[in-house]
Every structure is written in C-alpha cells, then in structure tokens.
Design a protein around this nucleic acid. Structure first.
Length: 555
RNA sequence: GCGGGUGUAGCUCAGUGGUAGAGCGCCACGUUGCCAACGUGGCUGUCGUGGGUUCGAGCCCCAUCACCCGCUCCA
C-alpha cells in the first residue's frame, strides 16, 4: 500500500488535515476532519466499552473491576519530578556538529566505552602505564580509524595529535594520562585554540557544549513567567491515574484487583515528528493502570497482554501485521519486570512500529509518589485481616499493628499498564482499511475501486440511505428512513447523481452498507441492503432496517 | 539538527523568463430504473511564504515554513 495515496484520500475526504494549514502548517500537529473525528471517536468508544464498561473475564473467569477518570493535562510539576520525567527528559544533551548525533552528557563515557571505534582503538595502547606506541596509533588512524571514526582528530590529523600527546606524556612522566584524558587528546585537533575536547561516540567529532534538552512541553501559570510558575503539558496520561489512586480507592469501595482507565491528550516535544500522524507532538492516549497484588501481577500481565492483542484483531487488524514483541531484559526499565510492545507493520516502515506497550511497572510509580508526596498510597487487605487468626498476637496491640503494616495485609500494589496510542491505532486502522480492487461498471467491465474496509464498529458512517431515482416518492421514503436511523447512528442521505457513483463514494469512505429505496419499495415496503465488500444486495422489509443495523453493529 | 527531494485549482499533476493549464472532483438544471452514466452551464488559484535579480518571475538567486526519503532522536 502506498502511504501517499492514503494521505491524499484522508485529506480529500476529510479524515485528517495538517494543523494550521492555511498558515503553512506546523510540524508534528494534525487535525481530524468530519470523518476522521468519527473514526477516532469510534475507536475511543470501542476501547472504553470493551475495556472499561465490559472487559473480558479475568484469568480465573472472574469479573474485572474497571473505572475511569479524566484528569487535567497540567498537573503540579512535582508529579513529573516524582515520575522521573523531569530527571530523564531534562538531561543535558551534547550534540556532534559533524554527524548530528545526540548523546546524554552524563552518559558520554559509558557510551564511549561501548562504541565501536573506541573499542577498536583501545586495543592499540595501554592507558594504565601511559605508554604510547605512536607508530601503532598512526597505523590505526590511517586504517581502521578512517572507517570507524572519520571525524576523530587522531584520524584527521594524526601527526599533530600524537605530538601533543607525546608532549603531555614526556612533560609529566610521573602522571601518566588515564583513559579519559587520552581520549580527550585523541579528540583534540587544535589544543591551544579549543582546549581538550570530547569525541562523539558515533563519528569521533568534537562534541558541543551540554545543553538542557527536554521532551516535555512547557508553559506557565499565573501572571509571572518565572521558573517557579513553570508547568508542563503532561507527556502521558498515566500519572494522573497514579496520583488519584487513593482518591479512587476512597470514593468507590473498590477492592484490589481493579483498573483505572483514562483517555486524553499528551504532549512530547519530539525531535523529529515523522511518518504522518505516527509520531506527533500532540497525541491521544488510551491508558489503563491495573492495580493488583504483587504475587498475582504476572498473571495479570499475561491477561492484559492477551486481552489487548486480541482487541486489535477483533477490530479488524490482520494478525500477520500485528506483532506482539516481548522486550528483552536489557531493554526493560530498571523497575520493570516485563513489557510487551504490540506492534503493527505500517506501510511506511520495514520494521513493525509500536501501537501499544503493555508494561509491568511493579510498584515503581506508587512508591515514587509516596516518596515525593509523603502520602501513604499502600493498600490494606481488610477482609483478609478480618478473617485472619489473630491468636498469635495474644491481644498485643503493638504486635497487631506491626502485622497489619506489612504483607500479606498491607502492601504497595503492583501495576500492569496497557498504554495505547489512539492516533496510532487510528492510523493503523486507516492503513489496514485502504484497499484497491475492481468492481464492474454499468457495462460489466471491471473498474478500479478504492474502498476503505473499516470494521463496521469503527466506520465513520454506518449506512447510506439512497433513493434509486428522484421520483415516484422514493426520496420521501428514503428521507423518512434516514430520519429514523439517524436517531441512533451516523447515517448519510444522498440523492445526487447516478446510483453507481453514490455507491462508490460510500466505498471510498468505508460505509459498510447502503440501503436503496427502489420501485419495488413502493409495492411491498422492502429495500435493498448492499454490502461494501461483496457488492451483494439483499432485500428486506424497510421496517426491519433499524433492527438489522443494530444486529450487525453489535460489539 | 544534518544531507537529498518536493511544494501550481478540492485532489492528481503539466507548465521553455513574456496572457496560469489539463484530467478528475464539486455545484446548478435537465435526465435517471442498481455499481465512478449523459447533456448544458458554473465555481475553483496570494503558483507554500517573504525578500532579491529583471522592462517582466510559477520558472533564476537568497531566506523561511511545511511535507517526503536517509541519518539522528524516540524516557
């Protein structure tokens, strides 16, 4: 499938527009048009219905408790300190002017010890003794170095660099240079002009100054625009759930395990927004935080991984394009026990791209918020305590208190986090639906047809109501049916042009069914229902249309 | 952020420094008898934006914005 054709269709038919287009657009932001908003809304509604209102039975066949919240986009900035976003997002970054590579300033040396050219170079000398084998380094610079680190000073100008290094070593023989200092010398071409420099792990070029770099978008509240008034647009909806965990617990009588769900906008200052709406700076998430007992968390992780994967399949994503991928141990965050990315083969990439991450986050988030807010976010098993044999404590209140303060009675819940991208799934649905096939024209000759094969639940328009011709009362009957159906569904009335053209127009926007009022309707009150994918038509009584539509749209 | 490419009607795209075009679509009227019909008429443009060169710029130059591809980044 050609991505350009999909992008053109989305614009032509009103699914997706570039944001602020008449002003030249803005990088990384997109608007949904009349059809796009219906599609995305259907996706969010399907998610809410299938995950919050009516989630599949649990691993042991039990009912799943789910509730929702809708939190503010702007929160107390301390939330983002606790979550780690300020720390990791605001790390000073250093950029290589030669190749454009970014590296976190505090991770430079770690990156250097892991990088290819450094590992190659390190075999050519013995930094601990400080001994330098100039001819050997020269050979490296003129051989392997040229390929591995083309912008390293040692490679670009080995004579000068080696002479600086020799001066350094000879000048202070009792202080042999360590690995870091040696490396700085290797990266420095004009010692007197620039001082010692540090090399890029990618190409060896001299790195620039460290600059703070944050992926969170910032704003200010109140009248003063100061550091103290700075606030962040949330980079994920999850934290709103965590900070409201206690509120939900206290206001609902819910007992563990249960989940809290939220859909909403999130913002990230992506360096390179790319691939249509896939990586946008403003996007919408559909997130669940499922709170459970630490001993049961893996069971719930597996439950959600399966539930989320099959949800996509159920809504029409072919299973061979859907790739659940378990993250390796190295890839996992330090607090995480497991994480599965549910990925989709988008047409714009040879690699599957992430639609959703199902993460086992342990007690990391709640523990962080306990630490930073000073509030107790632990959970107490009241029923378990009520039934417990307390004879061991002999009525000693202190012993009882101590027992109540730890497992199995009190603990910080573990969390399973299925975090899905609403816009990413919308894009996947569009890609998946786009189909070019052939359909016969009025002479029976095959003609090219573009059809969006949306799952009926997701289709922006559920049905079109069409009078075959505009006479003999057909438009009136059609309009009456239209009025009836639009009470419950987004349906479309069209009496313009020939019937074939009207069918094709509906195909292109993925309307699953067309109801046509024809001459026979006048005689026996039946209409035809025409199927988008098969082009087949059946007759049914006009009085049964609403029920039939309801039946076909059942989740 | 770097390198390469693109930007002309709603869409797809022609356009050689000298009057801005085509196809499709869209709208109106007539027609219509189940899969992109036909006839007649009509609308549609700051040629991405801002400068410059020139008697004259869609075309040449500079800058800028957006999109695409490749690097890079992606807690």
């Amino acid at each position: 499938m050609d991505m350009d054709k999909l992008v053109a269709l989305c614009k032509r038919r009103g699914f997706i527009f570039q944001s602020s287009e008449i002003y030249g657009g803005i990088n990384g932001f997109w608007d949904y048009g009349p059809l796009g908003v219906e599609l995305k809304k259907n996706i969010k509604d399907a998610w809410w219905h299938d995950m919050v209102r009516n989630p599949p039975p649990g691993p042991d066949g039990q009912e799943i408790e789910m509730v929702g919240v809708d939190c503010a986009i702007i929160m107390n900035p301390k939330v983002w300190e606790a979550s780690g976003h300020v720390g990791t997002f605001a790390d000073p970054m250093r950029k290589c002017p030669q190749c454009g590579h970014f590296v976190r300033a505090d991770q430079l040396w770690e990156a250097l010890t892991l990088c290819t050219w450094m590992n190659s170079l390190i075999q050519e000398f013995t930094p601990i003794s400080g001994a330098i084998d100039s001819p050997r380094l020269m050979k490296w610079a003129q051989g392997k170095g040229k390929r591995l680190a083309p912008n390293l000073a040692l490679v670009r100008n080995p004579h000068v660099v080696l002479s600086f290094l020799a001066t350094r070593v000879n000048g202070q023989p009792d202080a042999p240079p360590d690995l870091m200092e040696m490396t700085r010398y290797f990266a420095t071409e004009q010692l007197h002009a620039t001082g010692l420099q540090e090399p890029c792990p990618q190409c060896g070029g001299p790195l620039g100054e460290a600059k703070p770099f944050t992926l969170m978008l910032e704003s200010h509240t109140g009248t003063e625009k100061t550091e103290a008034s700075k606030v962040y647009l949330r980079p994920e909806t999850a934290q709103g759930i965590f900070v409201n965990f206690k509120n939900v617990l206290d206001s609902t009588r819910l007992r563990l395990p249960f989940g809290i769900a939220q859909t909403g906008k999130a913002f990230r200052n992506e360096i390179t927004p790319r691939n249509y709406t896939f990586r946008s700076r403003e996007f919408e998430q559909m997130e669940i935080e499922f709170f459970c007992h630490p001993d049961e968390s893996m069971k719930w992780f597996e439950y959600w991984r399966e539930v989320r994967k099959s949800w996509y399949t159920k809504l029409g994503i072919k299973s061979d394009k859907l790739r659940p991928r378990d993250q390796g141990e190295k890839e996992l965050a330090h607090y995480s026990k497991a994480c599965t990315d549910i990925e989709y083969m988008f047409p714009f990439s040879d690699e599957p791209q992430e639609l959703e991450g199902v993460a086992h986050r342990g007690d990391y988030d709640l523990a962080q918020h306990m630490k930073h807010s000073g509030k107790d976010l632990s959970y107490f098993e009241e029923e378990l305590w009520a039934k417990a044999d307390k004879s061991a404590y002999g009525g000693d209140k202190k012993k009882e208190q101590e027992a109540k303060s730890k497992l199995p009675f009190r603990y910080v819940p573990h969390v399973i986090e299925p975090s899905a991208g609403a816009d990413r799934f919308t894009l996947a649905v569009l890609c998946e639906a786009y189909t070019e096939d052939t359909a016969p024209d009025e002479k029976g000759a095959p003609q090219e047809r573009i059809v969006m094969k949306f799952h009926p639940r997701l289709a922006p328009i559920k049905a079109a109501i069409l009078p075959l011709v505009n006479k003999e009362g057909m438009p009136e009957i059609a309009h009456k049916l239209y009025r009836e159906l639009k009470q419950d569904y987004n349906v479309f009335f069209d009496d313009g042009g020939a019937i074939g053209r009207r069918y094709r127009r509906q195909d292109e926007i993925g309307t699953p069914w067309c109801f046509t009022i024809d001459g026979q309707t006048l005689a026996d009150q039946t209409v035809t229902i025409r199927d988008r994918d098969t082009l087949k038509q059946e007759r049914m009584p006009i009085a049964q249309v609403a029920n039939e539509l309801k039946r076909r749209l059942q989740p």
